[in-house]
Amino acid sequence: MALRELSSLEKFLGLKKPHKYSTQGVKKVPLLQSNNGPALVGLATIASHLAKEAKKPELLGTTPEQRAVVQQWLEFRVTRIDECPREEIRTVLKDLNQYLEDKVYLAGNSLSIADPLLYYAIHHIVVDLAVQEKERYMNLTRWFDHIQHYPGVRHHLAPVVVLRNRVYTSCHH
């Protein structure tokens, strides 16, 4: 799964030549061989490296504060979501929903690589949410819909139909 997502991320970043990845260990941690130096291991590490390679360092944040926030959400993705026991997933969604209440993107007002990486990670969860649940996690769903329609992000994943904003649904009659 991580490998397909890295390939989608490469396309999103506009990297022309695809990299070759392998995985290691039981958890299938992605590994990127490099010509000039030791291999890079770990999804967050490789994703950060790809953004630099694509000369898009702004996707890692433009200030030290933003860079720390981006790193935090990358870590959240690989520790809290990838390792999340089934019974805890609702808590994670609730927390994310609360966090996104007043935000357009995870790191504030501009897209960072944490957005596609979190989107890839929760896609399979959001697909299975019932209508009422999508409504309960409305900020998260709004963010999700925004990211899946962001140019170049979606690639290997199917679009998920989310609810229209309440403001629009009330205009239907």
Binding site: K27, V29, P38, L40, V41, G42, L43, A44, T45, S48, H49, K52, Q71, E75, V78, T79, D82, E83
Partner: peptide, 15 residues
């Protein structure tokens, strides 16, 4: 990159 990789290892594997 090397620092980031150790931090990721610490958070995902070691912790």
């Amino acid at each position: 990159d090397a620092s980031t990789q150790w931090l990721e290892w610490e958070a995902t594997e070691l912790q």
